[in-house]
C-alpha cells in the first residue's frame, strides 16, 4: 500500500497515477497511518502550507523515521520538503535528500512551462514532456545523489538511496514511470541482482 500525503496540493493526481499502475493507495493525514503503508508520496502544492500542517500534526519526525526504511517520492513542493535546506526560513524541510533548493527559482506563474526531458532510469533512457509549475531548483547536492534527469544542465530529477525527488509534475501528465520505479521496479531490480 502506497500513501499520498494529503494535507494540501495535487494529491488526487498522484492517486490517479497509482490507480493507473494498479497499486493500492490511500490518503495520509495522521502519523499512525504511516504504519500501514510501504511507501509515501509528497505531492506538489505550497511548501509553506505543507510545513505548517506537517508541524501542527506531528508528522515531521514520523515521516523522517518512515523514510529510514521506506521509499518516498516527492514532486515540486514534495522535493522541497525532502531537501536538507531551503532558501526560505518559512519552510521546515525534512532532510531526507542531501540537496539544497531554491523555491520558485524560475519565477512566478507566467514563467511556468512545459518542455521535453530525457530521463535515465532503470538503465534505459526515456523522453517525456514535463510540466514545471513555479518550480524549485536544486543548487547544491551531496555526493550520494544520482541525477536521473537534467534540464539546461541543471538537475531536475534525482535519486538518493531508495528516495526520488522531482522538480516537475509527472502526475499532471499521466506519466507513470517515476512512481513505478520508486515503488516497484527499484526493488525488483535489487532482488534480481541479489
Amino acid at each position: 500500500m502506497i500513501g499520498v500525503l494529503a494535507l494540501q496540493g495535487d494529491y488526487s493526481k498522484h492517486l490517479e497515477i497509482l490507480e493507473k499502475l494498479k497499486i493500492s493507495s490511500c490518503e495520509i493525514r495522521y502519523p499512525h497511518q504511516l504504519n500501514e503503508i510501504n511507501g509515501l508520496i509528497i505531492p506538489g502544492g505550497e511548501s509553506t502550507t505543507m510545513t505548517d500542517l506537517i508541524e501542527r500534526n506531528d508528522l515531521h519526525n514520523n515521516i523522517i523515521t518512515f523514510s529510514n526504511k521506506n521509499p518516498i517520492l516527492g514532486t515540486c513542493a514534495g522535493l522541497i520538503m525532502m531537501s536538507r535546506s531551503v532558501n526560505d526560513t518559512r519552510v521546515k524541510s525534512l532532510n531526507i535528500l542531501d540537496i539544497e533548493v531554491d523555491r520558485n527559482a524560475y519565477g512566478r506563474q507566467v514563467n511556468s512551462f512545459r518542455d521535453e526531458l530525457s530521463v535515465s532510469i532503470s538503465g534505459k533512457v526515456e523522453n517525456i514532456s514535463a510540466t514545471f509549475i513555479r518550480a524549485p531548483k536544486i543548487n547544491r547536492m551531496g555526493r550520494d545523489i544520482e541525477i536521473i534527469s537534467s534540464y539546461n544542465n541543471e538537475p531536475v530529477a534525482i535519486k538518493q538511496g531508495i528516495h526520488v525527488g522531482l522538480a516537475f509534475h509527472p502526475e499532471l501528465d499521466g506519466i507513470t514511470l517515476f512512481h513505478e520505479y520508486t515503488f516497484v521496479k527499484q526493488f525488483n531490480e535489487k532482488s534480481h541482482a541479489a
Partner: peptide, 18 residues
C-alpha cells in the same frame, strides 16, 4: 512552452486542498 492551458491548470491543481 509557457502559458499553455495545461500549465495554467497546473497551478490550479497545486492550490487544491488549500
Amino acid at each position: 512552452k509557457k502559458g499553455s492551458f495545461e500549465v495554467k491548470v497546473g497551478l490550479a491543481e497545486m492550490l487544491k486542498g488549500g
